[in-house]
Nucleic acid binder design. Structure first.
Lengths: 325, 325
DNA sequence: AGGTCGTATCTAAACGTTTAGAATCGATGT
DNA sequence: ACATCGATTCTAAACGTTTAGATACGACCT
């Protein structure tokens, strides 16, 4: 059915080997005239390189597995797209799997990806999951964790430095005149949330640590139940910040008038909330690039990328398009 | 390196063929005792089925390519996840590619996916792109368009019926007392937007057709520049509705007080906007299931799935958690 | 002329499966 | 005893590529 290298070789009057050399641009040189004939023959016949056959023989499938908790979450969606960009630039295809924050589903997904002979695995680990890279790395597959690595794993982790960003957020709110600055985190301090809590604590600014389950509904409940609304709040994730916004909207609490808010994550959606969220923005593009380089065993230039503060409206700053009261 | 069927066969004291029969559960029967021995041997050795080798021989890679304009857009993100669920249920892995709404990138992506020998292609075509399935289907690959099919293509399309949904939206706004109901669409009526505009027109209710480029910024500009704010508006996509919301927030226009809003798409994010958006919700799960069944050549039960109205706050209805004035 | 080198090409053996066709082996029927 | 049959298993040929080793052929040197 499909056009194979043998067809191209026959047409170009050469052997399969040289066709392969031309297609892969190596590992042996091909005379310019021959190369032209092969290229012409391939074009005429509509040859398409069969990566499956190549994968079987060469051991590289050109596939990279990406495991994310939930690609509908804008933060992971944004990370996923950055990863795809970085992978495409390296000629890899991205196979995605959602773990749904569930360790078992994550393990199943990884198993399926390894069966597909992926060249590597980029994992944002579900919290509470055992180290899923264990079985994977035993097989010799390369694995990189992004954003969150399960406790006890020694596998490479690519994550942003949030310390400076959170400090900047706190400093910024203080400039707006807030003496107390509270922090809203999830029920546990696992993963990057822990770093953010620590960074907030490290500033030494007085304030309370509030907790709410992950998910917007929970965050909404929290704000609704709040007796005295805190004046300034740093929120650990966009997801929760959006929940806080929804709760404030429902309760008629003015943001930033009665509650100043700074979120962490800074996924694209934060630019379009009402009001637009000021956020400690994760350097997703750089994280994606570094992950891919690690995975492919290339040198990784630049150190840990740092999250930076993106100022919009929810902190109290005037923002283009918004009337300053 | 890796454990192969030959290793398992040796250990189980049988031939490679029976190992294959056991692994694939066919196409020939295996005696119960032998099967057990094979399964035990495979477990002891940690055998993992090599899908690349299987793909080369059998012609089925277990991979399905999914091409989306932009996986960061919540609507496509939600569709993507539904597709992944449906594919996983059929034992397929999903390879995603973003086209960035660009015909050229879309063509490149499809080419790469075909090279990976995907078993099929699910495409949400970039508007304005030539029929990208042409070259693909010539190769015998099966292709299904979802949501939007380029004009001139005869390939299978899976899309929702928006007529009843939009009519319900218009009727609902009328019940809220609006005599005029405007409609906000993109610059062209290509794809599903056209159906929605037509459905709005078909209701015969007086109102103006407003236009704005795709993208939230453009929608924001539109509302900001509006002399007299329309009282009731149906918006063609969530993306634009979020833009309208942002513009209203910035301009201090109360939604739904001064402007009642119903969006089309109904991606998960609409539940968490301020105020929560009433929307004509696309039956994404059903669309995903149908797409996959079409792709795999299975019978597709049920006709065209219909979009349905999900009532929240932006239309003027009271909504749980919101004080009714 | 004979040897040596370099370049370009060819031959053929993998890679790990799938799956027809052949082979084996009791059991059954005559 | 012998042919027949069914159930099970084995043998071996693909699938389309990659790539090491063998080969062919001038050019160059002595």
């Amino acid at each position: 059915m499909a056009v194979t290298m043998a067809d191209v070789a026959r047409r170009a009057g050469t052997s399969i080997a040289v066709v392969s050399y031309v297609v892969n641009d190596g590992p042996r040189p091909v005379a310019a005239r021959t190369r032209e004939r092969v290229i012409a023959a391939a074009a005429e016949l509509g040859y398409r390189h069969n990566r499956v056959a190549a994968a079987l023989r060469s051991g590289s499938s050109g596939l990279v597995g990406v495991v994310l908790p939930d690609t509908v979450n804008p933060y992971f969606a944004a990370l996923g797209r950055r990863l795809e960009e970085a992978l495409t630039a390296s000629g890899k295809l991205m196979v995605v799997a959602n773990s749904g924050y569930d360790g078992r589903r994550q393990a199943t997904a990884i198993e399926a990806l390894l069966g597909a002979q992926v060249d590597g695995l980029i994992i944002v680990s579900a919290s509470g999951a055992d180290d899923p890279a264990g079985p994977a790395t035993e097989e010799g597959a390369s694995v990189v964790y992004v954003h969150h690595r399960p406790p006890g794993s020694a596998t490479t982790l690519v994550a942003a430095d949030n310390e400076a960003g959170v400090a900047a957020a706190v400093a910024h709110l203080r400039e707006h005149g807030h003496a107390r600055i509270d922090f809203l985190a999830g029920p546990t301090d696992e993963g990057p949330v822990g770093d953010r809590v620590a960074a907030w604590r490290a500033t030494g600014v007085p304030g309370e640590l509030l907790r709410s389950a992950f998910g917007r509904a929970a965050a909404a409940r929290l704000v609704a139940g709040l007796g005295t609304v805190p004046r300034a709040l740093v929120v650990a994730t966009d997801e929760q910040a959006v929940g806080v916004l929804a709760a404030c909207g429902a309760a008629g609490v003015d943001v930033p008038g009665r509650l100043a808010l700074i979120s962490c994550d800074g996924s694209p959606e934060t630019a379009f909330t009402v009001p637009p969220l000021t956020a400690v923005e994760q350097p997703l593009a750089e994280m994606a690039r570094q992950s891919v380089r690690h995975l492919l065993g290339e040198p990784v230039p630049g150190g840990t990328p740092a999250a930076t503060l993106t100022v919009r409206r929810s902190c109290g700053c005037p923002h283009p398009g918004f009337p300053t009261p």
